[in-house]
Amino acid sequence: MELTFSLDDLPAAASFILANAQHRILLFDAEMGVGKTTLIRELVFQLGGGRVGGSPTFSIVNEYEIANGAAAYHFDLYRLKSEAEALDFGIEEYFYSGSYCFIEWPDKTPNLIPNSNTLISIELLENGDRKLQIRN
């Protein structure tokens, strides 16, 4: 599934993801600066989490309360040096919690990512729009 959107269409892009993602583990594949964090903030908002802050670059994971008291987790794995570092903070517990897990830079932990996941690829187009592809 594919969608082209502008930053003004961010709510529609998030709705498209939530309607078409078949898993709660969502992997975000995009270059730095394309808008992964901004899109994830909109996803959390649409799940009932209110407006949230920035990327968990330094904390690695942020937890958000969403509708009905459930949790959603936002991971920024960019700074990880090894999969062992991810295991040390209990990444697998998050992945198998049944909660939404939004993961930036999933290529840092390829052997730890559950097979049941949805890959969200985002490409910046020349006109400033984004092309989003969903693979379940």
Rank of each mutant, 00 (worst) to 15 (best):
A12F: 14
D107S: 13
K81S: 12
Y100V: 11
L3A: 06
Q46Y: 14
I122M: 15
T109V: 15
P11G: 13
F95Y: 13
I17M: 04
G35N: 05
R135F: 15
Y100M: 09
N62R: 04
G90C: 05
P56F: 06
V34Y: 01
S97H: 11
L27Y: 01
L119Y: 07
L125P: 02
E2W: 12
L7Y: 13
K81F: 05
L7M: 10
N136S: 15
T57W: 06
V34C: 00
I91A: 03
I134E: 05
N62V: 03
I40M: 02
D29N: 14
A86V: 05
T57D: 08
L27S: 04
Q22K: 14
R135D: 14
A30K: 00
G35M: 08
A12Y: 13
R41C: 02
R135N: 14
K81P: 01
P56K: 04
F102A: 03
L132Y: 08
N111H: 14
Y73N: 02
T109M: 12
Q22T: 14
Q22A: 15
V44F: 07
G98D: 09
L119C: 12
I134K: 02
I66H: 03
G49H: 00
A67M: 04
N117S: 15
E85N: 09
W105S: 08
L27P: 00
I66A: 04
S15F: 13
D129Y: 08
N62G: 02
A86I: 03
L47M: 08
G128W: 11
I40N: 02
F75W: 07
Y64Q: 01
L47P: 00
R51G: 08
Y96N: 10
D8K: 07
V44S: 01
M32Q: 07
L80F: 14
Y78K: 00
P56M: 09
A67G: 02
P114T: 11
L7N: 03
E104L: 13
F28N: 01
S99Q: 09
H74P: 05
D8G: 13
T4Q: 09
E2R: 12
L47W: 01
S55P: 05
F75H: 03
W105Q: 07
R79K: 11
F58R: 02
V34I: 06
E42L: 07
E65K: 04
L87Q: 10
L125H: 03
A21M: 07
R24L: 07
D107P: 07
S99K: 05
L77F: 01
S15A: 14
A86F: 05
N111P: 10
H23C: 12
L47H: 02
G48A: 12
A71P: 01
Y100D: 03
D129M: 09
Y94C: 13
P106A: 11
